[in-house]
């Protein structure tokens, strides 16, 4: 998947997550701010990495502000942001 521009998706309301995707020329970086970071930070990171791999995305900065979203929501928001960035 080729990303052409930065994009954002989701919200910061309860059970949702806001994810920003910034294509950049550097090694990928994932910043996670989460209400449940202690409990689920690692799992969120794994999920994001696996979606990036699935979509063959590299050299990207991902900013995540999570409000306790379940995996299906994180996945949907990241896919939306990638879809928008690829437009």
């Amino acid at each position: 998947m080729k990303l052409n521009k930065r994009a954002i998706a989701g919200t910061m309301t309860s059970s949702d997550v806001m994810i920003e995707v910034i294509p950049w020329g550097k090694t990928s970086e994932i910043n996670i701010k989460s209400d449940v970071e202690k409990q689920y930070g690692d799992q969120i990171l794994d999920l994001i990495n696996s979606i990036l791999r699935e979509n063959d995305v590299d050299n990207v900065c991902i900013n995540v502000v999570d409000k306790g979203a379940l995996d299906f929501t994180i996945s949907a928001r990241l896919k939306t942001a990638l879809f928008r960035a690829a437009k």
Binding site: A9, D71, F72, T73, S75, A76, R77, T80, F83, R84
Partner: peptide, 15 residues
Amino acid sequence: KDSARFLVSEALTNV
């Protein structure tokens, strides 16, 4: 429209 589509699709698959 796009984000709703992705969200419903993921929900149907996972919930």
